[in-house]
Each structure stands twice: as structure tokens, then as C-alpha cells.
Nucleic acid binder design. Sequence first.
DNA 1: CTAACTTTTTAAGCATTCTTTAAGTCAGCT
DNA 2: AGCTGACTTAAAGAATGCTTAAAAAGTTAG
Lengths: 222, 222
Amino acid sequence: MNINILVVEDDTRIQDMVCKFLRKEGWIVDACANGDDALSLFYDKTYQLIILDIMLPGTNGQELLKELRKIRDTPVLMMTALSDDDNQLRAFNNLADDYVMKPFSMQILVKRAEALLRRSGALKKEIQAGKLVLFPETYGAQYEGKKIILTPKEFEILELFVRNAGKVINHETLLTRIWGYDFEGNEGIIHASMKKLRDKLPCGVIRTIKGVGYCLEVESDD
Amino acid sequence: MNINILVVEDDTRIQDMVCKFLRKEGWIVDACANGDDALSLFYDKTYQLIILDIMLPGTNGQELLKELRKIRDTPVLMMTALSDDDNQLRAFNNLADDYVMKPFSMQILVKRAEALLRRSGALKKEIQAGKLVLFPETYGAQYEGKKIILTPKEFEILELFVRNAGKVINHETLLTRIWGYDFEGNEGIIHASMKKLRDKLPCGVIRTIKGVGYCLEVESDD
DNA sequence: CTAACTTTTTAAGCATTCTTTAAGTCAGCT
DNA sequence: AGCTGACTTAAAGAATGCTTAAAAAGTTAG
């Protein structure tokens, strides 16, 4: 699977350098230099990692992080020249995942990025929730070792559920994450898609929370 | 669920300090001062986070981490006085998750620990009152580990009681908190809902205070 | 101690809302 | 053209939330 990373940094020298080193790892890197561009990228695209400078023209990194966290749980690495503890604490309070201070070695940045990717499961070739295993590279799926054929859209939905196993995904989230913010259609598509998906899975795997959303059941050991 | 953390640090002053601050978060902390003790703890017990000093008598932190990774994927935060990049890189190559250099503020250590716990899914949000556990993320509930299926409205009510365990919630409060100030219906709904809820819980969990309201029993009195 | 009264419990049933299901349209691809 | 997958629509079905009212339990006063 491809790893997509977003770098938000206004200093073009640093931006170039960071992008270069990340790309050397085989990762796909987008970059932007201000808060507004970053914000619209947050909405449009899903990244496996976001690297955020704090000092930015317009919306600063901390505010950006807060906005991001309203819609995504993407791992975030904060990158800054500010070496005071206050800023670092604020970043973690805003649910950052890591915080590095300039000047830093590029190797270390890359290693820290890799650690975040590894821990968030982005580097895994397969993702699992209970008896369900997904192979994002091939759009393949298995339940108890038995192959399940899914269409791309079905896979996308199921992947969202597996990556959030045990959490309710409400209708709105489902709609925006799968069909995007600008989707013009109606909610019927959710129900139609969920039926198709359920038809291919053993019953009980996806639970309905009426009036709220759906939830992938993970086995609890009792 | 309880969070278990292991701190491996030979300097007792630092060890005490770290443990103290982690415990303040409500986490359960084990500590040891050398590599051999650490290693046997790795095997015996599962931790949600391990904090490892690098300079240790006997097996050092890097070797310890390598050994750990053969059997466990526990998040690891390395903690060290060594400020050279080589050691940091080696730590990440050994699959550490974070690396902080002494001297560091305790607050930041705690925040970084929290970030790792959050990302690894150990900080699953749940609220508890006695034997009753609620999972707001899934609208799920357990009593003595046994699953209880609740409707969203029932969950909402029970959540209010759990968050105010042991306190009486009077009818008016219940009505306004759950159904809102502008609710047009009559008080019958309270009683109907409470019955539904009680039917799903062991008897005695919700006590009636006649003429006043209801109260979640937090202590079993026999 | 009992009768009258108040409050809660319980049960039945209805209405609404949300979900499921199925059939059908449309667009892109082979 | 025929197939497949994505989406729309609408009817059928089910769960939930709510109302109502009678039965039960508890309280108070004579």
C-alpha cells in the first residue's frame, strides 16, 4: 500500500529537505506552506501521517492540529523551532503524536515518522479485527481464513470499519469519509452499501446502532 | 481497563519521580532497576507501555529492547542521558516508539507516554461505576464482564447515572438532561424508560427514592 | 390500624422513525 | 452490446420512544 504524507512548512528550504528524505523511503509526499492550504488538504485527502510546523503564516500549527482532530485521527508529528516546554505540552494536549525541535537531523525525523507509521498500522500489509483480515494492497479480504470478494467501494467501507474496530461510525462520518464532503447524493447509499457488505459477511459482524450508525463487532474474551 | 506501565531505571531518584507522576494519572506502575529483572517482567506480564533507560547495569536498554521485540510489540519510550543522534537512531532501529533526553520535564514525559498509550489503543474510553462499565464509543455496556445491549436512549440515561454514581438524580433533572428543556411529553416516559433499563440490569442496581428520583447503587450492601 | 391518597411499577399498544430489502437506473469498461 | 459496480428510490419491516392506564407499593392522617 502507498504511504501518503503531508508536510506543512513555510520555510521552503526545510520543506524541500524534509520531502526529499521522506520520498527516499518510498513514501508519497504532498507539501504546502500555509494553514489554509493545509486545511483544505485535510478535508480532501486521507494521509497516513501529517508533519506540521508550528510557526506558519495564517493559522498556526496548533490551531491546525485542533481543526484536524475534529475530523481525523491521523498521526501528527509537530516540528518547530520553539523549544519551550509550553508549546510542546500544548501540542500534546491538542493530541499530537510527536514533537521535534529544530535543528534536528533528517535521519531522526524520518525514523520518528516511521515509528508513527508503524504504530498506527500504516506499514502493515494486512490489517485485522477479530476474525476479519484485510489486504489493502490487493483489496482482498478473509473471514476465518475464507476468502471474501469485495468491490472497491465495499472494501473501502470495510477498511474504515476495521481501522476503527469496536467504535461506532455514525452516518455522517461514514458519508464524508467514504463519499467525501461534497457528495451530492442521499443517505440511501449508506444503507444500500451496508447491505451489500453484510451479505458478504457472516451475520453479526456489523452491528447496527439505530439512529446513530454502525459498528464492527470485535470478539470479547469472556 | 487498567493501564500497566513498566519503568526500567537504575537511578532511584529518577525512578521514583517518574513512577510518581505516572501514578498520578491513575496508571499502575511497576519499576525495576536492572536488565535481568526487566527481562523476566517482559515475559511474565503484559504492559501497555514500557519506559526504558538506556544506561543500565548489566544488559543495557538497547539490548533489552531487542529482546523485548522478539516476544512483544509493547510501545516503548526510551529515556536517556545520551544526547547523541547515534543512540537515538539505534533506538528507533530497534523499534522504539519514542526517545526523550534527560533532563526532561516530567509533564512532557507523561504527555508522551499518554500519546503512545492513546495511539496504541490502550486508552479506550470507558466509564465505570462498581461492576457496571460503559463504552461510550460503542454504546456498549457490561455488568460483571457480561455484555448488555442497550438502545441509544437507554444508554444515554445509564451514562448519566454512571457519571453521577451514588448521587440521586431527581425527575426534573433526568427529564431536562435526557429529553431537553423543551420536551413536550409527560413524565410517564421516565418511568417507562427506567423500567426498560432495569429489565436489562440486575435488580438492585438502580434504587428508587420515592418522591425524588433514582440513584445508581455504587456499593453492594449485604 | 385502616382508609385515602400519592407515587411507582408494570404492561399493552401505538406512532414514528430508522433500517432493511429489492428492484431499477446509469455510467464506465471489456 | 452486455457486464459490473455505484447509486437512487420506494415499499416493507422492525426497533424504539412514547402514551396511557391499571396494578402495586408506599405514605399519611384520622
